[in-house]
Design a protein around this nucleic acid. Structure first.
Lengths: 218, 218
DNA sequence: AATACCGTCAGGCTTTTCCCCGGACAGTCA
DNA sequence: TGACTGTCCGGGGAAAAGCCTGACGGTATT
C-alpha cells in the first residue's frame, strides 16, 4: 500500500519539527515536503502533490486560509488540514468555508494528529471534540455557518473595508475622505453602514473588530 | 561533566515536541521536564530544578513574562529563555525586564536553539541578530529600556488606568465621568495626560495600547 | 424590467471630543 | 518647608463625529 503523502506548511521550524517527530515512525504516513511560506510551498508542489496538506492558519505572507481557498479549486484531490494556535470560532469557520477537511489546535496530541491524518485521508473530515463543540454551538446560535455570519467581515464591501482600515489606523474622517478622494459625508455613511452591519455600538468596537479581523496590526 | 538541565514550558505540544526532537541527540543537554501550564511547571519544579527554563511567552493561564518575573527572585540560579511567536519589541523588552537571558522566535533553527542554550548556560545572554537589531534600534530611539519605557503602562497612575480601561471598553467621557463620580473635565484631563505620557496621537492609539497591555480583552 | 445593493453626496442639527489655558487641594519626599 | 505629583475641576472655543433624512447613477441579480 502506498503511504499517505503529507506536505507540511508552517513558518515555525519548531512546529514543523514537532509534527515530523510525531509522524516519523508511522509506517503509513510520509512527509514528502515542508515549507515555511507560500512561495516555498508552490515550489515543492511542483515536485509532487501530496494527499494531505497540513497548513498553518497564521502563515506569515499568505494565510493558510487563503492558500486553502486557492487550492480548493486548483487541486481538488488534496485534502487540507488546518493547524492553528487558537480555538477561535472565526478561524474554524473560515477554515471550513475555505474547504479545510480538518482543524487541529497546535496543542494537539500525537494520537489526535495521526487520527486526523488517517481520517482525512480516508475521505472524511476530522474535528476534535473541542472543535465540534464550537461548531455545534454556533449552529444552535446562528443557523448556518456557511453564509456570511453575523459580525463577520464578509458582510463588508470593499469600500467599507478600506474605510474601516483607515479609521482603525487612527485617521479622522476628513483624512480618510482626502485619501480616498471622497466626501467626508461618504466616509460617515460607510462607517454607519459598517456599524449597522456588524451590530457595533461605538467607534472603539470598530477598532476592536478591525484588529480581530486583521485589518490592521496591533 | 553534568548535562545542561532544561525544562520546557509551552502549551503547544507540537512546539514542545519540536524542541525535544531538536535537542535529542545532543550529549550535553538534557530535558528534565516539560509543562503546558504554570501549575504543571510548579509541580515539576518540585521534583528538581533545571539550569535553563525555556518559556513560551504566550502561555495560556500565566504568561511567560509573569513566570519569569516570579522566578527571577525565587530561583535566581535558573536562566530563562523566552520563546515567542513574534518579534514584537514590546515582547522583547518585557522579557528583558522580567529577567530573561534570551529571546528566541519560534521559527528559530536548530543551530540557533542549541547555541542559545549553551550560551545562556555559560552565563551570557543570547539574542539572535534579528533580536539584537530590534534592541539596538530601540536604544537609538529611546535611550534606556530598563526604567519605565516610553509607552509603557508603568507610567500611568491608578486613576489614569481606570479611565483608560473604561474608554477602551467603548464608554464616552460622560459615561466614564458618571461611573467614577468625577467631572467630565477630569476625564478629559486624564485622557490628555495619558496621551502625553505615552506619546500617542489618536483615541484609536489609546484603544490599541489598552489591548496590547491587557487593560481589556479583545 | 424590476429589485436590490453599492458608492457617492448633501443639509442641518446635536453631541462629543479636543485643545489651551488656568487653579485648588492632599500626600510624599527631599 | 518647599517642590512635586496625583487628583480634581473649570472656561471658552474649535474641531470632529454622530444622527437623520433624502437623493442619484451604476451594476448585478432575477
Amino acid at each position: 500500500m502506498d503511504k499517505i503523502k503529507v506536505i507540511l506548511v508552517d513558518d515555525h521550524n519548531l512546529v514543523r519539527d514537532g509534527i515530523k517527530s510525531l509522524i516519523t515512525g508511522e509506517e503509513d504516513i510520509e512527509i514528502i515536503g515542508e515549507a515555511g511560506s507560500f512561495d516555498e510551498l508552490e515550489l515543492i508542489m511542483k515536485r509532487g502533490l501530496p494527499d494531505i496538506l497540513i497548513l498553518d492558519i497564521a502563515l506569515g505572507d499568505t494565510s493558510g486560509i487563503e492558500i486553502a481557498e486557492m487550492y480548493k479549486d486548483k487541486y481538488p484531490g488534496i485534502s487540507i488540514m488546518m493547524l492553528s494556535m487558537y480555538m477561535s470560532d472565526d478561524f474554524i469557520f473560515n477554515s471550513l468555508r475555505a474547504g479545510a477537511k480538518g482543524y487541529l489546535p497546535k496543542n494537539t496530541s500525537k494520537k489526535e494528529l495521526l487520527a486526523a491524518i488517517r481520517t482525512i485521508f480516508s475521505g472524511s473530515v476530522f474535528f476534535s471534540n473541542e472543535v465540534s463543540d464550537i461548531i455545534l454551538k454556533s449552529y444552535v446560535n446562528n443557523a448556518n455557518p456557511d453564509s456570511p455570519r453575523e459580525g463577520s467581515e464578509e458582510m463588508l464591501t470593499k469600500r467599507e473595508k478600506e474605510v474601516l482600515t483607515f479609521f482603525a489606523e487612527g485617521k479622522t474622517n476628513q483624512e480618510i475622505a482626502d485619501q480616498l478622494y471622497i466626501s467626508i459625508r461618504t466616509v460617515e455613511s460607510h462607517k454607519n453602514h459598517i456599524m449597522q452591519k456588524l451590530n457595533l455600538r461605538t467607534p472603539v468596537d470598530l477598532v476592536k473588530f478591525a484588529i480581530k479581523n486583521k485589518f490592521i496590526e496591533l
